[in-house]
Design a protein around this nucleic acid. Sequence first.
RNA 1: AGGGGCGUCGUCAAGCGGUAAGACUCAGGAUUUUGGAUCCUGCAUUCGGAGGUUCGAAUCCUCCCGCCCCUGCCA
Length: 563
Amino acid sequence: MPDADSNAPSNFIKDIIDEDLKNNRNDGRVHTRFPPEPNGYLHIGHAKSICLNFGLASGYKGLCNLRFDDTNPCKEESEFVEAIKRDVQWLGFDWADREYFASDYFEKLCQYAVELIKLGKAYVCGLSAEEIREYRGSLTRPGRESPHRDRPVEENLDLFQRMRDGEFEEGTCLLRAKINMASPNINMRDPAIYRIIKTPHHRTGDKWRIYPMYDFAHCLSDSIEGITHSICTLEFEDHRPLYDWYLDELKVKCRPRQIEFARLNLSHTIMSKRKLMELVQEGLVSGWDDPRMPTLAGLRRRGFTPESIRDFCERIGVAKADSMVDVALLEHCLREDLNKRALRVMAVLRPLRVVIENYPEGKVEEMDAENNPEYPGAGARKVPFSRVVYIELDDFREDPPRNFFRLAPGREVRLKHAYYIKCEKVIKDERTGEVVELRCTYDPESRGGWTNDGRKVKGTSHWVSAGHSLEAEVRLYDHLFTSPNPDAEKAADYKTLLNPNSLNTLASCRVEPSLAGAVPGSHYQFLRQGYFCVDPDSSNGKLVFNRTVSLRDTWGKVEKKKN
RNA sequence: AGGGGCGUCGUCAAGCGGUAAGACUCAGGAUUUUGGAUCCUGCAUUCGGAGGUUCGAAUCCUCCCGCCCCUGCCA
């Protein structure tokens, strides 16, 4: 049996494919497709589908097409087509030359519609939208048949042609499938096949005035492309009978099979394209690529790697039960990846000035610093050390709590890669009482951060030399929403659930000089703090970093518990 | 109420009649020149519930309960 991805876990879809292969369906071919509608940006939920479809194809040595489902010109734009291609590519998948559009098939689809009319299985209905709704019945009551349901084929053909020619106004008539108005499945109550839309299409311009509905276009597009397994989300389960009906009635050669799986829900965020669009349009975020957004563009800008997202998609599995995945898993995948690849560097986010009184004025030493302890091949660099340095405000406490082993009056701490320093004196702002500077002494014997006299210096602080460091802006991010499941909060509008502290900009951070000229998109670990990446907002003189994700912080947890 | 689905640890998720994988989270501990990383250990006597079949049931049967989706000329 042509086995799927060896390391990827199995799932019910693979079981189905295995079974199909065993029964020699589709001559042993496996051909999938990822079919986005270009009406917004791709998000992490789409990533699940992309990984699934492309992953299945490669696992079975098959193919996966990229197909834009562009059957509604009112909502779709070329900007989204370009963004989607960029994102799929970035995620690491290649559709080669199989880039298709449902709009490529408009002529063919129209012929199929004509065919259906000739078969007596479709008719032009002149009921208004409200009438159609009324005729449809309800969940419990069957619908009623349209008075136009039994129009002769010739008349339907003529009317449909005139719809196509643009003779009728929008909403005046539509082509419907003649199925069963009493079906318990509402999708089968004579669904619309073609409607009149006079808005120009982003690809075909004003060539068409009628557009096919999703159910009609999708199954036939799949068939035209030779798709064997058409994988979609759960809400289309009810549409499967219709998917099959069109293919059966039209007796197509290629019979794809639709399989539904549960879409991804991620805690502390939302996945609805409509809502994400609203956040963008109302300026609640800076754009589709705002680093707080669950969009692939946002995650990329935030500093997520494609590898970590693919790993995540593999770990969450594929099933049919509605689920809510904890964002902590995504963050775990990210840290695991970044830990291996990010260069370590020192940056002080909230600087506290430290003067080392016994260190010679004007002296500068170049300290050796490894770039990544996880990977010696990453090499080392020199970091300048001098009499005045900055340490993290948080690494000093005038009145240290229990188990705090950082700096405090009279205490000694190690400056990573440099020396032990001891706090001799605390200088405060006379008016506010705020600590503004520390006076310390260093131990010349501790160069490199170690002595062999058995001294136990447990605390290690990162630092930068005041005179050599560069100024930088650092953007700290937190969950976009305070609620773990914004969609489930029945009482509140999701916008009121936005986290007011999801962005915290620190304008006066100091970073080590080796960061000069760091390229947008590059990843670093700011020692002891987290993973950061260079934001495209950076310019020659001004570095801007995004905190991708913090490091695990066991001390922070201990402190939080106490409070 | 009609139809379609789904219910296994806090969260995902294996399991397909032979006696509950794994991951994340969480809690302990070891180790550590990042309170990082790494490494150990612990965490479902029970699978929505109740009956039944069987030597044996999360897996099969019956009934019940709960959750999700469907009445766009959206996808």
